[in-house]
């Protein structure tokens, strides 16, 4: 989430109480603030900082058994992982997955957003229908699409009806990842569309009036007015989509268990597998650290992009 406010209205609202408070700053406010913040801060330490610290510490150890024991092992886990062809495959599959799913979902969301800001009969219903899959839990979407991808299921029936050959879908190493991407896009595209619709509606009408005076056509206006002014929501959606995509776990765990032949072995599934199925806690924690470094890097890029604009 992008959280540094640059909205002038918010900035003004921030200054008003600040002025009032400087007039009469009292120690009582500090005590009150501590009490109001206490539950959130306790949760923050217990639920975010502690597990992060544990993951980092145990990634430098070997032989940890259910949180105790373990000897310092330096970078042994990292060396083990990065020289392991299975993990190299995990990184490769995750990278391919991200490179396909993020542009695909953003392009679909942008197309839908441009369409759904138009005025046409039933626009409200269409927006709701597009958005509905967001409400379905990931496990529901996974199970339903899992049935749909069955060899004798409805998708193959549609293919047969239009005279195309039937496909193996999830049982094929070439198609499984793509099937997962389609399933996830069904959940995700409507969600990202919402952000882009809000962004489109925020573009001042005067810019389009000026473009009309210049005689710009639709494509020209999209390229020179709409997209540049949609930069912030687009950047947000790209980052948020990348973050949520790299954390994909549910369909892999329920439908493919990383297969066939490792073709859907995304990093979240692999680290879950290392920790709980293979029982190598230290390797699992090392994968957590690698994932965290990636997530922090993405978030940092986002902050830089947004702060540059100011």
């Amino acid at each position: 989430m992008t959280l540094i406010g640059s909205n002038p209205r918010v900035a003004a609202a921030e200054q008003a109480p600040a002025r009032a408070a400087t007039r009469r700053r009292s120690p009582g406010q500090w005590r009150a603030a501590a009490l109001f913040l206490l539950p959130a801060l306790v949760l923050l330490v217990a639920l975010r900082l502690l597990p992060t610290a544990e993951a980092v510490a145990q990634s430098f150890q070997r032989g940890t058994q259910s949180f105790t024991g373990g000897r310092f092992a330096g970078l042994e886990n990292y060396t083990l992982l990065f020289t392991d062809p299975t993990f190299q495959n995990v990184l490769w599959v995750t990278a391919v997955f991200l490179v396909i799913i993020v542009p695909l979902q953003i392009a679909c969301a942008l197309f839908l957003a441009v369409l759904l800001v138009e005025r046409f009969p039933g626009v409200g219903i269409v927006r709701t229908l597009v958005f509905i899959p967001v409400a379905a839990p990931a496990a529901v979407a996974t199970v339903i699409w899992g049935v749909a991808y069955q060899p004798q299921g409805p998708i193959n029936a549609v293919l047969a009806a239009v005279g195309l050959p039937e496909q193996p879908f999830l049982t094929s190493a070439d198609q499984a990842l793509l099937c997962i991407i389609v399933l996830l896009s069904w959940i995700g595209v409507g969600y990202w569309t919402l952000f882009l619709i809000a962004g489109l509606q925020d573009i001042p009408r005067e810019l389009y009036e000026a473009a009309a005076l210049d005689g710009a056509g639709w494509w020209r206006t999209l390229w020179s007015v709409t997209l540049p002014n949609l930069r912030r929501p687009l950047a947000f959606v790209v980052v948020a989509n990348t973050v949520s995509s790299v954390l994909v776990f549910v369909p892999i765990q329920i439908l493919t268990q990383g297969g066939p032949a490792g073709s859907t072995r995304l990093i979240m599934y692999d680290l879950y597998n290392s920790s709980f199925v293979l029982g190598d806690l230290n390797i699992g924690q090392t994968e957590v650290v690698i994932l965290l470094v990636f997530l922090i890097a993405i978030t940092a890029v986002q902050f830089r992009m947004l702060s540059k604009e100011k």
Binding site: L47, T52, E54, S244, L247, M268, Y272, L295
Partner: peptide, 10 residues
């Protein structure tokens, strides 16, 4: 900002 799922295993 660190998504919950990333640290769910530890």
């Amino acid at each position: 900002l660190v998504p919950f799922d990333a640290i769910a295993v530890p």
